[in-house]
Design a protein around this nucleic acid. Structure first.
Length: 828
RNA sequence: GCCCGAGUGAGGGAACCGGUAGACCUGAUGGCCUCAAAAGCCAUUGCCCGAAAGGGCGUGCGGGUUCGAAUCCCGCCUCGGGCACCA
């Protein structure tokens, strides 16, 4: 495609110019009001792909736009550089993860710079840098000291073949190890945790005040999974007065309908409940349950398996509501870690209980009257209570409350809240991550490495073997150390932190990236935080965003971030993903379309513009055969803009001065409308229509110039139109607009240092608007009217329309609806 | 199964509060320019009837509310995403 200007030379020139001028560098003493615009820092997987381009195009638009609006915009960039892919590559090729990772960072950084993104590169951080590791570890130790980090036994995925713990991602869907193919089992091992559950309620409640997509907030709410209910005791038959089975339910109103109870295989009362005759069956069930991972336990379905997954213990408990004895089953679908590890079963009002009761031939007693015509299955909806003693006749909500109060009065139950959210397991048996700075001393137990000895760095002289075991665990020099307290021989922790820890505070480090004394100065963090616009993929809706919210609170509470707000991200924008052939475009799917070829052909401006123009930023975008043509179209548009702004050779348009003629005023009005429209569209993230408005304006400008070919265009009006177009396009296609501006206004005039254009609302209003005249809701005429036309005059004009006169044929209209100046509807 | 989100020309999309459906772009067709091509420029482009003027239909499907529905309500269908034994 032949272009109107030298794309490569101009883009290179301005990228250098922006970097050299420090236009986008901000400091604490900057007098301008602050904005913090941040794109989620990327895992460096190599050169940028289209997802990055889309992300950074949106972010850069905001950075440049807000800078022009007079803000000091903090726009940092960094790399989430620890992670599994580098270590897997090391195992495959023997190349050290650092070498591998830094090469990928160089590639990604080069392509981000080639995109022309405005970044304060002085603030670049990489999570594998020793300074970042150091403060990661400082924070860990502070959390440890305050009890927010702790070590405990937890069920983990264990591969017997590899003799190691696996991450969930390394367990295949069929429950086998991705490397050895052995079935993965659950094992209890000591692991490190962060106490996210200390903030459960706050994390849930504070969601209401966030300017985030409702979808993301809902996902977080579901993930936290708050459920209110009641815990109460069922006395165990024949086991003495104080032996009780405690159950949790959200439906205490259905208690009269419980016809059996179920306990988890690991439940401590299983031994006691199981009778001799049932022992073999119960033991068999417990053994298979223990061998299964939770994934297995939760993936089976159907009545047949339900029958096999539960066994009668032979024991009975008493329903305190009606004194009836009910059998106790053990089943693997009841989870020990949730609630009390035991449930009451009400088959009439719970789907799973219904299925289980059918499989085991257990009775069903309805306690909520189902609606007419509903006769089969569990009814979980509202209704009037029946068969429920003192609850009879009440509605479900009221009955829940009464039943709970009844239990509390008798001292056999309490209202409780259960959550799905668990503490965050942060230890990884991995090399390429931040070492956990802890030592195990035979005499002093867990001892944190003193802060002045940080960072604890992983040694480089390790072997990467395909055993699945971390090289750190096999490195005697790293492993054997001395106790910081007593100096005696001790063992170093060889686990590293989950990489989500790194990404949970990098936005704070960006505020003060060179600080050698502390993770960040609280004053600097308070100055820039919270992030005003956080932009990234929807795939981070739960984990990263929840962890970062937790971590920010924890940092405030342990005293590292006084004065910083508890919510890190004021506004969140989740861009849609790019799909190709119906699949997400990603490296692992092998369907990447590299931005590099567009940089080399149409240039960064055209590629950026096409991402903005393709559709709403939040929507998914399909990359098809037509996408290339669309990108070319954006290049053609930029060529037109260039030719408008920088005429080649002699200016083909004669220019006149003096008073503007009506046509000139019309162009001036269109210019004000353009500025108004683009300003508004950018505020509401409607970038695609902002681009469309620019294209429409270019058509208007073309028509104006063509119409005045003979007598000449009005110089000042024409120049103002072109300048306005360059200014509003400046955040979208920064290079070509910057060059065109400089050629028009002379060396030293920097487009992106100009203030964002203002507009006159009076001029931006349409001079004439189209009044639509309908008869019975069908369009019959269009009349050009003054935008201030009164309703009365609008009706008068409509009724005078020949088309309306014809339709009415002399009859009086039954009704006339007027919405001046847009519409009059004549109803016959 | 439950909870979200989305369905508009040949394609991407626009219509922000219920008021001209299809802005803008891509593609396609025809034309101008050219020795030719590229680039550029011009015109047409939802479907049907009609020579035209004009008319009818049309926003996944079926109903409803309204003077008026892509937009609101009810019931379906399809696609995408999240959660998925959480008691």
């Amino acid at each position: 495609m032949a272009r109107a200007y030298d794309v490569q030379a101009i883009e290179q020139k301005w990228q250098r110019r922006w970097a050299d001028s420090g236009l986008y560098e901000v400091d604490l003493d900057d007098p301008r009001p602050v904005q913090y615009v941040l794109c989620m820092y990327p895992y460096p997987s190599g050169a940028a792909h289209q997802g990055h381009v889309r992300n950074y195009t949106f972010g850069d638009l905001l950075v440049r736009h807000r800078t022009m609006r007079g803000f000091a915009v903090l726009s940092p960039f960094g790399f989430d550089s620890f992670g599994l892919p580098a270590e897997n590559a090391a195992i495959r090729t023997g190349e050290h993860p650092r070498v591998f990772t830094e090469a990928r960072i160089a590639e990604l950084k080069a392509s981000v710079q080639r995109l022309g993104v405005a970044v304060d590169w002085r603030r670049e951080i990489r999570s594998h840098d020793p300074s970042y590791i150091r403060f990661n570890q400082v924070i860990f130790l502070r959390l440890l000291r305050s009890g927010l980090a702790y070590r405990a036994e937890a069920p983990v995925n264990w591969c017997p073949g590899c003799q190691t713990v696996l991450a969930n991602e390394q367990v295949l869907a069929d429950g086998t190890c991705e490397r050895s193919g052995d079935p993965v089992v659950q094992r209890d091992l000591e692991q490190w945790f962060f106490r996210t559950t200390a903030y459960t309620d706050e994390l849930l409640e504070a969601l209401d005040g966030l300017d985030w997509p409702e979808r993301v907030k809902t996902m977080q709410r579901n993930w936290i999974g708050r459920s209110e209910g009641v815990e109460f005791d069922l006395p165990v038959v024949g086991a003495g007065d104080d032996v009780v089975l405690r159950v949790f339910t959200t439906r205490p109103d259905t208690s009269f309908g419980m016809t059996y109870a179920v306990v988890a295989p690991e439940h401590p009362l299983v031994e006691l409940l199981t009778t001799g005759a049932q022992r073999a069956e119960v033991e068999a069930l417990r053994t298979t349950a223990a061998a299964k991972s939770e994934l297995d336990r939760t993936s089976e379905e159907g009545t047949e398996t339900l029958a096999k997954r539960g066994a009668f213990t032979g024991g009975y408990v008493v329903n305190p509501f009606n004194g009836e004895q009910i059998p106790v089953f053990v089943a693997d679908y009841v989870l020990m870690r949730y609630g009390t590890g035991a449930i009451m079963a009400v088959p009439a009002e719970d789907h799973r209980d219904w299925e289980f009761a059918r499989a085991h031939g257990l009775p069903v007693v309805r306690t909520t009257k189902p609606p007419e015509g509903f006769d089969d299955g569990a009814w979980t909806g509202d209704g009037v209570k029946v068969n429920s003693g003192f609850l009879d006749g009440l509605e479900v909500a009221e009955a829940k409350d009464r039943a709970a109060a009844w239990l509390e009065e008798r001292g056999i139950g309490t209202r409780t809240v259960n959550y799905r959210l668990r503490d965050w397991l942060v230890s990884r048996q991995r090399y390429w991550g931040c070492p956990i700075p802890v030592v195990y001393c035979p005499d002093h137990g867990i001892v944190g490495v003193p802060e002045d000895q940080l960072p604890v760095l992983a040694p480089d002289d390790v072997e990467f073997l395909p055993t699945g075991e971390s090289p750190l665990a096999r490195h005697p020099g790293f492993r054997h150390t001395t106790c910081p307290t007593c100096g005696g021989p001790a063992q170093r922790e060889t686990d590293t932190m989950d990489t989500f820890v790194d990404s949970s505070w990098y936005f704070l480090r960006f505020c003060d990236p060179a600080d050698e004394a502390e993770p960040f100065s609280p004053a600097a963090a308070a100055h820039y935080m919270p992030v005003d616009e956080y932009i990234g993929g929807i795939e981070h809706a739960i984990l990263h965003l929840l962890y970062a919210r937790f971590y920010t609170r924890a940092l405030v509470d342990v005293g590292l971030a006084p004065g910083v707000g508890r919510e890190p991200f004021l506004r969140l924008f989740t861009q849609g993903m790019i799909r190709m052939d119906g699949k997400k475009m990603s490296k692992s799917k092998g369907n990447l379309v590299s931005p590099a070829r567009y940089f080399d052909s149409v240039g960064a401006d055209a590629l950026r513009l096409s991402h903005l123009f393709a559709g709403p930023p939040a929507d998914d975008m399909d990359w098809t055969e037509q996408t290339d043509q669309m990108i070319d179209g954006c290049g053609r548009f930029l060529d037109r803009v260039w030719r408008f702004a920088v005429p080649e050779g002699a200016d083909p348009h004669r220019r006149r001065e003096g008073d503007p003629a009506p046509d000139d005023v019309a162009l001036s009005r269109a210019t004000h409308r353009l500025v108004a429209k683009v300003s508004d569209d950018i505020e509401r993230w409607s970038f695609n229509t902002a681009v469309a408005a620019c294209m429409e304006f270019a058509n208007t400008l073309r028509d104006y110039r063509r119409a005045h070919d003979q007598e000449g265009v009005h110089g000042p009006t024409d120049a103002a139109a072109v300048d306005a177009l360059l200014l509003v396009l400046a955040p979208m296609a920064p290079h070509v607009t910057a060059e065109a501006w400089e050629r028009r206004h002379g060396e030293g005039s920097v487009l992106h240092a100009q203030p964002w254009p203002s507009f006159d609302p009076d001029l931006a209003r349409q001079e004439r608007v189209t009044l639509v005249v309908q008869v019975d809701g069908k369009v019959r005429d269009r009349i050009e009217v003054d935008p201030d036309i009164s309703e009365e005059d609008a009706v008068k004009a409509a009724l005078a329309s020949p088309r309306v006169v014809e339709e009415l044929a002399g009859a009086a209209p039954r009704r006339v609806v007027a919405r001046a100046p847009r519409l009059v509807n004549v109803v016959r």
